[in-house]
Design a protein around this nucleic acid. Structure first.
Lengths: 331, 331
DNA sequence: GCACATTTTTGGAACGATCCATATTGACGG
DNA sequence: CCGTCAATATGGATCGTTCCAAAAATGTGC
């Protein structure tokens, strides 16, 4: 009643030594099944709760994995976080999810805090503006750090990077729009000169080039609001197809177009679930985030357990989902 | 180079005792400013990282707060999580966010894990089907547990509950729809006989009663997909206004109606950001989640620090945002 | 310059689990 | 019935911090 029970109490209750209890906690094969069961019964009887702090202090890992996300408002990232967490939980790891809102300072604080709490590994989708300090801190901690989705800074080269084949996706969309016969195709959203923008832009630019079209690019932070705001500008420019940086931009634009009663082809990128539950349904590059999240977790855990830093991770393939938003009216 | 530095190393470097270093770490007012600065300089010089596990083992708190969410895919919850996390971070707490996906078993595992990691407090939006075991485990741990947004089970009565004035919001919407002159008003979404559903339904039912209308209620798990699926049924039933359980249902329904070219008033609940970036813009009950998240965090922290369990928390007020989706066509 | 209060600093004993080297048990062949 | 080997079980030292009581340094009034 008074204090929380410790392994000592469990040991006394089960009539064994605390070392044995410790072994049971670690699922060690060294204890006889019979003993193990007795100990487990005692733990249950006493409502024993393992103290991870003590465990990690002496030796083992905390069983915590940090997950640093820069935009929890984007369904793509929540989906990613959710599936990574699932995979980690199955492997017995608890996940600390933190949102940085694309703020380098917040990110530094968050990562520092995770290091203090001795996470066993880190999964980071770095925020823009991440500083050397942050990288140094992670490097010094000497734990597996996997960068996902964005490689923000060349200084980060020594952390492995796992992402999807955005360049190919970009080509697929651009070619599709050309094939459908659109004349003035614009690229909308993304922050200039960042790696992920370059990738998603690359296929567009090369396809425009091949097709002999003049590219039109409007940059901006990829939110629903951006698409919503840029509608007029696109209409005025005579654009008849907008290839958006991601689904959020596309959905915002699509809504704005509907409000104005203007018809224009719109495509997204990521293929979040919402794409099929809007009108018109949104053509997008399907990225299978669920699978991606699980694989990222697996890679990280393999590294954590095997000790071998992964090399040259392959890009996860993507494919195009053509839907009504980009098809010529049947009228 | 070899090992991570400890307070002992810092103490040696700064020429003080480890107790002093410890005091500096805790921002104790007992150390002279001069000493404090010298110690901090040494910490920086050695790249010292505090070991929270050891700290919490001896005495202090872990500085971790657990945040248990049941649907991270719902923007409402991510917004809540984000703002709560912000407030907690400002108070120096790290947040462990976990998603349960409305699964009681997952939730139990997640909470058990948080207790093992000795979170200092818990913010829980309980999943349906939560068991007595889970409540017992939390109660035994003897830490502040604040239930938010849902009170799922009468057994949970001894944990304080903080939510918004959903019943009032429900009345506002229903009355608005009656005032606009809609004839057949249906309520769509929510799982039957759950407290939150009852609350959001209450104003609808009483208003229908007063207005002498027959209520029509379609239950279901409140997702975008539900609205999308139920469109035909509502149209066939001759419904001319759908009061939805939340924004997701409303948005799904709205999209399905657009696709069918059918006009029907639609209202949501929560007022997520997306409501103004869709066509037609969605009438909804504005709940100010940002403020709610911060307040929930504040209440929890006050409890954690003051030791006084909060009593009779007031419902946070809500108001109606009337937009195009529920207004009579100007045509 | 002394007595006394106040401010700072300090060793050493915890905290609860894990690891290691060592002890105990049991099984089996001779 | 003993020796040997494998399978299990055990004390005690240990991890890095905080807390406590008590020591040292500093300040104050006469």
């Amino acid at each position: 009643m008074s204090k929380k029970p410790t392994i000592k109490d469990v040991a006394a209750h089960a009539g064994v030594s605390k070392s044995t209890v410790s072994l049971v906690l670690q699922n060690s094969p060294l204890v006889k099944t019979q003993t193990r069961e007795a100990v487990q019964a005692s733990m249950l009887a006493l409502n024993y709760v393992r103290n991870r702090a003590a465990a990690s202090l002496r030796g083992g890992s905390t069983g915590l994995v940090g997950l640093v996300i820069n935009d929890l408002r984007n369904p793509f990232f929540t989906e990613f976080a959710t599936s990574a967490q699932e995979a980690l939980a199955e492997a017995g790891f608890a996940t600390v999810i933190a949102n940085t809102d694309e703020n380098a300072q917040t990110q530094h604080r968050v990562i520092a805090s995770m290091l203090e709490h001795e996470v066993s590994a880190l999964l980071v989708s770095p925020a823009y503006g991440i500083t050397k300090d942050t990288f140094d801190a992670m490097a010094r901690a000497g734990l597996p750090v996997l960068q996902v989705l964005r490689q923000v800074d060349p200084r980060a080269k020594h952390f492995p990077f796992f992402s999807m084949d955005y360049a190919h996706g970009s080509t697929l969309v651009a070619q599709h729009l050309v094939d459908e016969g659109y004349q003035k195709i614009a690229f909308v959203g993304g922050i200039a000169r960042r790696q992920i923008t370059e990738e998603r832009l690359s296929g567009y630019l090369s396809t425009m080039d091949t097709a002999g079209r003049e590219p039109t690019v409007l940059f901006g932070r990829a939110t629903r609001d951006l698409g919503w705001q840029l509608a007029d500008e696109l209409i005025d420019a005579g654009v008849d197809a907008a290839m958006c940086f991601n689904d959020l931009v596309a959905l915002g634009l699509s809504a704005a177009l509907a409000q104005r009663g203007h018809r224009m082809a719109v495509t997204g990128f990521d293929d979040i679930e919402e794409c099929v539950q809007v009108y018109p349904q949104l053509t997008s590059v399907h990225c299978d985030v669920k699978r991606f999240g699980r694989r990222a977790a697996d890679i990280l855990l393999a590294w954590h357990q095997g000790g071998e830093k992964p090399r040259d991770l392959p890009r996860q393939p993507v494919h195009l989902e053509v839907r009504a938003s980009s098809q010529r009216s049947s009228a």
